[in-house]
């Protein structure tokens, strides 16, 4: 088993909350990804068993959603929102500066695998632009210096 016992029981608890088990699938994927960093083929196979689906169906769901990954990921995910309201307030300039600060071209990972830098569509923070999402946290009202120091303080 690659999915741990505690996660497995959380998944079971979620399943009990829905009229059909599969209603808990996205929840289960979030849980698995929090534990493993991505939804691996092995995890997908176990999820398929739990939800009585074919593994390929599980992978189809994984690939449909931007927030699920089927491959190992960098330690931290940094996304600068580049949709219109953010771009009007300098988001693309910020993204370019962060690209050169980290020495990566978005979307891409730093050589040490510490940071994935990418852009994202509107995150519901338009008035507080430019902004970025790092893992599951928002950082708003940024300028270049503030954003760089936030990136520098991210752990290994």
């Amino acid at each position: 088993m690659v999915i741990s016992e505690p996660i497995r029981s959380e998944i079971d608890a979620e399943i009990a909350k829905f009229p059909k088990p599969r209603g808990a699938l996205l929840r289960a994927m979030h849980l698995v990804q929090a534990e493993h960093g991505h939804v691996s083929t092995d995890c997908a196979r176990e999820l398929a068993e739990i939800f009585e689906m074919r593994p390929i169906e599980v992978m189809e769901v994984v690939s449909f959603y931007n927030m699920f990954f089927d491959k190992p990921q960098a330690k931290h995910h940094v996304y600068v929102c580049t949709n219109l309201p953010c771009s009007l307030r300098g988001a693309r300039v910020l993204l370019a500066q962060l690209e050169s600060h980290l020495g990566v071209q978005a979307p891409g990972d730093t050589a040490d695998g510490r940071i994935h830098l990418g852009h994202e569509e509107c995150l519901g923070a338009c008035a507080y632009a430019p902004m970025m999402r790092i893992d599951d946290q928002y950082f708003e009202d940024l300028d270049v210096e503030k954003a760089k120091s936030i990136l520098d303080s991210l752990g290994e």
Partner: peptide, 12 residues
């Protein structure tokens, strides 16, 4: 009446 919270995963 029951209330269930589900979270999406990034798809407009």
């Amino acid at each position: 009446h029951d209330v269930r919270v589900t979270r999406g995963a990034g798809a407009y």
